[in-house]
């Protein structure tokens, strides 16, 4: 069984050969510039989320390019894994960081920019020579048949990964697991240590022990009251007004304006006898409204 030919280096030479079908050429000339635009946009976008989205575009077009070259399994895996999972994680972190945060332009590591520029030029040189060689020397591979196991399907690819390239594969897996474990160790806070999160039950017990302001949440306005308006104060079970339920924020119903109603609801104001043939006080009611 022959190992799969890597697909990426074929991209450049694909258009140069006369054997390339028209459909593939059209796909390349549409998708190639799009991928390039995505890469450039990623570098030059001011906003971090926009930058990530440009990168998504590049990943997506790469996946489509693989599809155009009959490497269907590779293409869809690229879309699912890179655009679907990895870039989604990127977005997740960027969204948590906030939309208005911008890059810092302060050079933290000494000589970082110089080293970065030198390495960048070096990598660009490597790519250029590889491209030049790809355009000139390489003979085109025979088109893949995606229905056969050798044609880049899941079965053939699995055999190559778990047979010929098992050791690099396991090394990569170990690296990734180490990274994930490191991240977990760094960010893990134990529940039992100091400052750890309490369970719901522990929190309730602490509340009743008096470690917090009050055992229950603050009463919502209107609880036990005669109306469900937010302006109506909550009544405690004994009929008195719960002072916490009076909102200081609602301008129209400042605590001073409610004073009269509060006294009335609390029963401090003397009421006429139940048998007395007297209507309720009109002026007081009018004020209440």
């Amino acid at each position: 069984m022959t190992p799969m030919t890597p697909t990426t280096p074929l991209l450049a030479q694909a258009t140069a050969e006369a054997t390339v079908s028209t459909g593939e050429a059209i796909a390349f000339w549409i998708l190639g510039p799009l991928a390039l635009a995505g890469a450039l946009g990623m570098v030059f976008a001011r906003n971090a989320v926009h930058s990530a989205l440009w990168l998504v575009l590049t990943m997506l077009t790469l996946g489509l390019l693989y599809l155009a070259q009959q490497a269907q399994f590779l293409g869809f895996t690229q879309i699912i894994v890179y655009t679907g999972a990895i870039m989604m994680l990127f977005l997740f972190v960027l969204m948590l960081a906030g939309r208005d945060s911008s890059d810092s332009v302060v050079e933290v590591l000494r000589g970082q920019r110089l080293a970065g520029a030198l390495l960048g030029v070096g990598v660009a040189g490597l790519f250029a020579t590889a491209m030049a060689r790809g355009l000139a020397d390489v003979t085109p591979a025979a088109p893949l048949d995606p229905w056969s196991p050798e044609g880049g399907g899941a079965g053939g690819l699995g055999r190559v990964i778990f047979g010929d390239y098992l050791f690099p594969f396991e090394l990569t897996a170990a690296l990734l697991i180490t990274a994930a474990m490191g991240g977990m160790v760094l960010s893990f806070t134990t529940r039992h240590g100091k400052g750890g999160r309490k369970t719901q039950r522990e929190l309730v017990e602490a509340r009743f022990r008096g470690e917090y302001e009050r055992p229950s949440p603050k009463p919502g306005p209107g609880v036990f009251a005669t109306a469900n308006s937010v302006a109506t104060p909550a009544l405690l079970p004994d009929g008195s007004v719960a002072p916490e339920s009076l909102s200081e924020l609602i301008e129209n119903t400042s605590a001073a304006r409610l004073e009269e109603q509060r006294r009335q609801v609390a029963g401090d104001v003397p009421k006429p006898d139940a048998h007395a043939l007297v209507a309720p006080d009109e002026s007081e009611e009018g004020k209440g409204k």
């Binding site: 997506l60 996946g63 269907q72 399994f73 869809f76 895996t77 879309i79 699912i80 655009t83 679907g84 999972a85 989604m88 995606p146 229905w147 399907g153 899941a154």
Partner: peptide, 14 residues
């Protein structure tokens, strides 16, 4: 497609 299942999954993830 030989990988039709992945097409549906890719659509969902995008």
């Amino acid at each position: 497609l030989p990988v039709g299942v992945l097409l549906v999954l890719a659509g969902a993830s995008i």
